[in-house]
Amino acid sequence: MKLNNKIFSYFVIPVLLFVIWYTIYIFGIFNPLMFPNPIKIILEFFSLLSDNEILFDIMKTLWRVVGAIIIGALIGIPLGLLFGYFEKLYNVFEFVIDFFRSIPVTALFPLFMLFFGIGNLSKIVLASWMISLIILVNTAYGVRHSNKSHLKMAKVYDVKKSYLFTNVIFFGAMPYIFSGLRIGVSLALIIIIVTEMFIGAVDGLGYAILNAQLTYEIPEMYAIIILTGIIGYLLNRAFLFSEKKMIHWTR
């Protein structure tokens, strides 16, 4: 049953989608410019895999995403631990955090370009800004909802503050931190791809998608979109895998 489900979701449904697309193409239901021959897209996809230029774009996008995640986590996790532990501190900053979280991040890009230029920095800083806020809120929530008795136990045995934060509070909040990271990684990919479509971008998957569209290489555009989707999916799976490995005690 389990294997059948897997075959269905990984093979049958994609084949079905392909058949529907191919039917649309054969009967010319939509403009072939928008819905080109899917076989052409697949061939394009495989030729992309041996294309150094697109591999370079993938690397560029990935390092921006990873950079943004690392910076976002380095800012969001410690602040989240503090805000979660010192409830009064969180209450003071709650409005500001919620307000900044509510601003659509793409609306801030022109501002960030003004401060950090049109290169890598502004893209990474913009994505880290959003990710750090998400991780901060998730971490603080995790600290608040972790087992309070562990804190009591640590207090009774008079453990040092540094141990309390790194070995008790941090681990207690870890399931929430990981879900923040997973949301963050998907969002980072979206933000980085979008920013790569802005003026000044010379590489990255966002740039490649826009470039293919501007030059009417529509099958190539679709192929890069599929490639981006696969990268996003694999990033998510990688996080799920490491989450399972690292938070082994919740199994």
Binding site: M153, V156, F171
Partner: peptide, 26 residues
């Protein structure tokens, strides 16, 4: 030197630490 053992064993020990680490703490 005071020690407190809670009703639920999961409250007194850290699930992410091995037995020996739970004993030693810091």
């Amino acid at each position: 030197k005071l020690a407190y053992v809670f009703q639920n064993s999961n409250d007194s020990i850290l699930p992410w630490k091995k037995v020996i680490e739970n004993i030693k703490l810091d």
